[in-house]
Design a protein around this nucleic acid. Structure first.
Length: 480
RNA sequence: GGCCCUAUCGUCUAACGGUUUAGGACGUAGCCCUCUCAAGGCUGAAAUACGGGUUCGAUUCCCGUUAGGGCUACCA
């Protein structure tokens, strides 16, 4: 009977969800769904000093926004809770004590000052910094006594002095690390909290995690984790270490070189579909030439075998393109729902739904993110007050003004104000005036929208309606 | 410094020893379409880091060099 697939995303609540974190969460989620397994959210808040208020709620909300829902986790029932590490302290104490009794871990009473001094000496001697194992061979009775008497200290794991460890990573194959480069890692801090290394192993085992899918930064410490599994006598899960996400200069993706919080992209008006699609492709591909994927498509096709090994640069240009693609696929009604709050915020009076839908239909192939509708299509909601300077120089002169006066007069008489009839009126006028249609089209667009770019003029005019068109045409005479 | 990982167009990537004049996408250049801008279509420039092996044959396997990244905390 094969083990059921159970994976987890285990962030620490130190701020906003990072795009790298989102990708780790996404891959875990996709892997779980693809294999009909469970996806668990666990909060790793063992560092009291780095805790950020509201970070957990923010994290969950961002995952929810992205469409990544978890089966077990904080605020959800599950058989393996609690899912927040700070609520599991007794579990870690019990387990670390087992390690001490078994001779696999020991009390260490070295002060931070001594540790610091040792490190400095090692550095001065150009030795690799590591704990000098000062307390490793303290007699058990002595250390138990000192502990009982309340002496402050930590518990460290005992790493074998010689030998090496080889483990298999689904993405990277065999990785070998010599025991001698491994430190006697602290497992339990003096504040009674476990370190990541203890907590992750205990929880992954207790929560029956089958595959540990996490960032590459954990690769060097994986041997310590495996060692702990062995010390406990537990079965070791499978590991998959994901390549890192990079800045354009190929350093680890960070603030300062652009936005790294998923929330930032959300605020900029990127679609969740585009973000998810884009993030998924940073390190994974389906093996063929398809690029447009919905979350369901990803679930269907995602496998760890097709995840790459090398870091991927987060390239906004491609995200923009993907966002455009998803925007085109998205029903106008949904775009409208996303757009309305932005319009309200910009002070645009409430529009009727059919009108808004028509504006979206006309503009959606010309925008990259949702706020572009507000920035580029404001003239659909109010008369222009400014006119493009270059456009004025190019298209606005006595001739065009005169022509537009005539155009306004004729349009005012049109009974059925449709794209076709408007175009007919304009082209006939152009012919009569013996000028090219462009000589009327460009100044008309300028007068109606204040801009030199935009959707097809006749469609735009139909949508604006006769009254508005005639009014703006006449108004432009005075304003320009 | 030590250890580990990685290395195909500017970027994301395909190729799992031969079907390859190394394919696609973004971006970029040009053309077409056209009332502008987009969208769309077509065309172009653009890569196997370097050096050794192994092999009849290496982008693909091995070694080294170089470069980049990660780790090296009582942070995760």
């Amino acid at each position: 009977m094969p083990q059921p697939t159970r994976v987890r995303f285990a962030p620490s609540p130190t701020g906003f969800l990072h795009v790298g974190g989102l990708r780790t969460a996404l891959y875990n989620f996709l892997f779980a769904r693809h294999n009909s397994g469970q996806f668990i959210l666990r909060i790793e808040d063992t560092d009291q000093s780095r805790k950020v208020e509201g970070a957990v709620e923010n994290l969950i909300e961002t995952l929810r926004w992205a469409g990544i829902d978890f089966d077990e986790g904080p605020g959800r029932t599950g058989d393996f809770g609690p899912y927040t590490q700070s609520e599991r302290l007794p579990i870690y104490h019990e387990h670390v004590n087992r390690l001490v009794s078994g001779g696999h871990a020991y009390y260490c009473f070295c002060t931070p000052e001594r540790l610091d001094q040792v490190r400095k000496q090692q550095q001065a001697m150009k030795l690799p910094p590591a704990y000098d194992r000062h307390c490793r061979d303290l007699p058990r009775e002595e250390s138990e006594k000192r502990h009982r008497e309340g002496e402050s200290g930590v518990i460290r794991m005992k790493v074998p002095i010689g030998g090496e460890m080889t483990f298999e990573d689904i993405i990277r194959g065999n990785v070998t690390i010599a025991h001698k480069v491994l430190d006697d890692q602290v497992l339990l801090k003096s504040d009674g909290f476990p370190t990541y290394h203890l907590a992750v192993v205990v929880d992954d085992h207790l929560m029956k995690i089958s595959h540990v899918i996490r960032g590459e930064e954990w690769l060097p410490s994986t041997p310590k984790h495996i060692m702990l599994y062995k010390y406990f006598g537990w079965e070791v899960p499978q590991f998959a270490h994901l390549p890192l996400l990079l800045n354009p200069d190929r350093s680890k993706l960070s603030k300062r070189q652009g936005d790294v919080a998923v929330e930032d992209y959300r605020k900029k008006g990127y679609l969740r579909e585009a973000i998810v699609n884009f993030i998924a492709f940073l390190g994974w591909n389906p093996g063929d030439e398809r690029e447009l994927f919905t979350l369901d498509d990803l679930i269907r096709d995602f496998t760890l075998e097709r995840v790459g090994k090398s870091g991927a640069v987060f390239n906004v240009e491609k995200l923009n393109w993907l966002n455009q693609q998803h925007l085109r696929l998205k029903p106008e009604k949904e775009i409208s729902a996303l757009l309305k709050p932005l319009l309200a915020e910009a002070g645009v009076p409430e529009q009727s739904e059919p009108y808004l839908l028509s504006v979206i239909a006309l503009m959606k192939e010309r925008v990259t993110v949702i706020p572009d509708f507000v920035d580029f299509a404001g003239y659909f909601f109010s008369d222009p007050t400014e006119y493009d300077e270059k456009g004025k120089q190019k298209h606005w002169n006595e001739g065009s003004k005169k022509a537009l006066v005539a155009l306004a007069d004729r349009l005012a008489l049109v009974a059925s104000f449709t794209t076709q009839s408007i175009e007919e009126v304009l082209r006939i006028l152009a012919e009569e005036l013996n000028v090219s249609a462009g000589k009327l089209i460009h100044p008309t667009r300028l007068a109606l929208s204040g801009r030199v770019v935009g959707p097809g003029l006749f469609e735009m005019m139909e949508l604006l309606g006769k009254d508005t068109v005639v009014r703006r045409l006449r108004r432009a005479m005075e304003l320009m």
